[in-house]
């Protein structure tokens, strides 16, 4: 497997950054960045990362299921993550999450038929003082309301 030139340079640098012989340290970052590029973590990707970091595929597979941002199945082009943890709960995070389900017509960890959107109820994302908060892919959206959410999603729908 090969990745985009940018990613290849990033990985080359990454493997350099850890102490000598500690390439295993690159496993998780590599999975994260590779996932962003190829969409999800396939067996093939696991074998590839194992090869690059000089570990066994099992050692890579072990971490995949541990970290909630690593996904074995492809997400939507826009991954909508709604926090319902305490601060968001108190400020309408749950209702926001229900609204997102209605708006997108999908449930937790599901993907829309057209593959454009996926939805996930997530834990505290470190935006508590500007709750309720959501993330679409890596972008934060603070002080959310149902209306703002609808606008955001409509905007993204149009964007295509």
């Amino acid at each position: 497997m090969t990745f985009s030139p940018e990613l290849e340079t990033k990985f080359a640098k990454m493997l350099e950054s850890y102490p000598p012989g500690r390439t295993r340290s690159a496993v998780i970052p590599m999975l994260m960045y590779a996932q962003d590029e190829v969409g999800c973590i396939s067996h093939e990707l696991i074998e590839e990362v194992a090869r690059r970091c000089k570990v066994t595929p099992l050692q890579v597979n072990e971490v995949v299921g541990f970290y909630s941002m690593l996904h074995r199945k492809p997400l939507g082009k826009y991954h909508v993550q709604v926090c319902t943890n305490i601060s968001c709960l108190l400020t309408g995070g749950e209702e926001l999450y229900e609204q997102a389900q209605k708006k997108l017509g999908i449930g937790n960890k599901e993907v829309t038929a057209d593959g454009q959107f996926s939805l996930e109820e997530v834990e505290c994302m470190g935006a508590c003082s500007w709750a309720p908060a959501i993330q679409i892919n890596y972008d934060f959206h603070h002080n959310m309301t149902a209306e703002k959410l609808d606008k955001l999603i409509d905007g993204l729908r149009k964007a295509q």
Binding site: R24, I28, P29, L31, V63, Y67, S68, E123
Partner: peptide
């Protein structure tokens, strides 16, 4: 001095300092 960032991948437990160390070594947190 050389300084780098290292990304986590979604695990609260990795804030616990020793779990963080396992995580930065490429293991389960």
């Amino acid at each position: 001095f050389d300084l780098y960032t290292h990304t986590g991948a979604g695990a609260y437990e990795c804030g616990e300092e020793t779990a963080l160390l396992d995580s930065i070594e490429g293991k389960r947190g």
